[in-house]
Structure formats: C-alpha cells, structure tokens
C-alpha cells in the first residue's frame, strides 16, 4: 500500500514535470539555444569535424530549426544519444527535438508518448553479405549469423523476417554502426543488416567494396523522421513546418543561393508565402514571417542538404531513390504552406 502511494506520487511528479515543459518554444527562445538530440555518430547523418563542429544530414535539420526559432543555425547544443537512451533523453527534457535517424512507428508514437513530425528520409532494411558466402538472395540465409544493432526497429524486423520465412539465425548483438562494420569485416558475422543507406555508407569505406553485395530484398519500411515530446502542439507545429518548408523549398527551386533574390521578387504566390512576402504564416506558429527564409539561408533546401551530406558526390554516394520529390518519381511530398 505504502509502496503504491509512493509510486503514484512519483508518477504525479513526473506528470507535472511534463506538463510544465509544455511551452518548449518559449523555453528555447529564453535559453537562446536549441537542444537537439542526435546520434553519437552515424556516417553522413551526424558526426564531428576536426574543429569539433557537428555536421551531417540530421544535424542540418537541427540547424534549420534553430535558424527558424533563434535566427542562427549555430545556436544548437547537440545531445548525443545511443539507440537505447534517445527517447528517455527526449522525454526527460534533455533535448527539445530529436533528429536521430529514428524510424516512425505506431508504438513509439502512442506508447512512448512522442509526436512524430513527418519523414526526412525514407529508408528500408537490407542485408549485406560477403561474395564468398555465395548467397544471392536473403531467402538463402538460413542458419546465418547476423550483426544487429540492439534497441532498433531493425532488430525486430529481422526477427519477423526470419520467422515469416521459417529460417533460423544467430544474432550477434552490437551497439553502433561502426562496431557492426568492424565485427562484420572481422568475420564474426556472415550478414550485416541495417537500413540500406547505412549499408551503402559502410560498404563505401571497405578496402574491397566489390567483394560485398547488398542483397536485393528490402524487408521493411523505415521512414526516418524527427520527433518531439507529446503534449506540446505549438512546438510540434514549429518543427513540422520547418521540415515542410525545407522540402517545399526544393519543390519550388528556392536554394540558399537564390533565396534573397526570390524574396525580393517572388516568381509565384507559393514562393511568396514560404518566404513571408505574402500572408503571416510565421506568426501562426509563434515566429516572425521570415522564418523559412532564414532556414533556407542557413541550411538550404532538402536537395542541398541531401547532396551536401549523403548525395552521389559524397563519399557515401546515396541516390535520391524514394527520397526524390514527388514530381521526380520519389515520395517526398510536403503539405503546402498556405
């Protein structure tokens, strides 16, 4: 009885803390800094350069949010988390928004009390094997040992896939992508499975990339997207529309280079609305009307962010694929700013 009342009291305190956190937008403005949850390091998505500055695909979206809210893309404090600690860190208020190559799922949305804001990268889980294994399809992987990151959706997908196909496998649990790469190359597992983007990125760094093949089967949908704590709709709106603005800017050809020019002389009403020349869309989300202009100026549009960090001209060399604009055969489709 006593224990129960203590637990209830604890829960009540936890609840009150969550409710008090409701005005995240004001907190961020008052703090003058955005706390953004990222990974402890994933090639192309988040890493530090030689001066200790954070770079990467996810990092650029964080900087975009900071540019919209605080007017400066550098006013971000990065909170590096592992796959296991990311949601706890978000819910405990250690971060304001999470951009950590995180798959949007129903249980995370509903059960973990997160609010997902959209998708910034469409991915799918694949398998990589050495050519020496003589395997050409995932259906031939019965009895294989598989390097798998714990605490991720890929771990669950793997179990599902092997159960559905009636095959057995031996999991080799690992913590990070880098660890997986080392273990796989050392031959401690036959198969390395993670999102196809991660596989391609890892393979690009092998000494003999041609000896490794990525099997044709993509066994899951992995829409990666940002999240915020549940219960602060205003803050969720800010982040959702920053993401949409970055995507829509590419659709209308607004780049970091021509944004000033377009703002001075908008070629069409859609662009005028995005850049705050027409309407007061910024004010609707608690910002000023030049919010999207600052975002694009700071980090560029979706295509620029993609090309700079993970696109075909980088070491990672990912193709746009599903992540092309809907007009170009992809599924990137932003709700209109109007």
């Amino acid at each position: 009885m006593k224990l129960k009342s203590i637990l209830v009291a604890g829960a009540a305190m936890a609840m009150s803390a969550t409710i008090a956190n409701a005005a995240t937008l004001d907190d961020v403005k008052a703090r003058g800094e955005l706390n953004c949850i990222v990974t402890t390091g994933l090639v192309g998505f988040a890493y530090t350069d030689e001066s200790g500055k954070w770079n990467g695909f996810d990092v650029d979206f964080c900087r975009g949010v900071a540019a919209a809210v605080l007017g400066d893309g550098m006013k971000v404090k990065f909170v590096p988390t592992t796959g296991k600690t990311r949601f706890t860190a978000l819910n405990a208020g250690e971060g304001d928004v999470l951009y950590r190559n995180t798959t949007v799922t129903m249980s995370r949305d509903a059960d973990l009390k997160l609010t997902f804001l959209g998708v910034n990268y469409y991915d799918g889980q694949g398998f990589m094997v050495s050519k020496d294994l003589g395997v050409t399809s995932a259906k031939e992987l019965d009895g294989a040992s598989v390097c798998i990151q714990t605490g991720t959706t890929t771990e669950l997908n793997l179990a599902d896939y092997f159960r559905a196909t009636g095959m057995s496998y031996e999991p080799v649990p690992i913590e990070t992508n880098e660890e997986a790469r080392t273990n796989y190359l050392a031959g401690r597992c036959d198969v390395y499975t993670t999102d196809a983007s991660g596989l391609a990125a890892s393979r690009a760094t092998f000494d003999d990339p041609k000896n490794h093949i990525i099997l044709p089967e993509i066994i899951s949908k992995e829409p990666l997207g940002p999240a915020v704590r549940q219960g602060d709709d205003d803050w969720a709106d800010v982040n959702r529309w920053v993401l949409n603005a970055i995507i829509e800017a590419e659709e209308f050809g607004i780049t970091s280079a021509n944004v000033d020019e377009m703002a001075a002389n908008p070629p069409n009403p859609s662009i005028a609305r995005i850049l705050g020349v027409e309407g007061n869309y910024g004010e609707m989300i608690g910002l000023d009307n030049e919010w999207a202009k600052r975002v694009i100026k700071a980090v560029g549009n979706y295509g620029e962010i993609f090309d700079r960090n993970i696109g075909p001209n980088t070491e990672i060399g990912l193709e746009r694929g599903l992540n092309a604009q809907w007009k170009d055969g992809g599924i990137l489709y932003s709700a209109p700013i109007r």
Binding site: T40, G41, L42, V43, G44, F45, A46, Y47, T48, D49, G52, W54, N55, G56, P80, T176, N177, E178, E179, R181, T182, A201, S202, A204, T205, F206, T314, E315, I316
Partner: peptide, 16 residues
C-alpha cells in the same frame, strides 16, 4: 565518445 563521433566523418570513416 569524441573518438566515436569522429569515426563517423565520411572523409575518415572506417578508421576505428
């Protein structure tokens, strides 16, 4: 930790 984030730099990836 600094080492781990540095490894993920595409220019240097794979030097764990």
């Amino acid at each position: 930790g600094v080492g781990k984030t540095a490894i993920s730099d595409p220019a240097w990836n794979g030097l764990s």
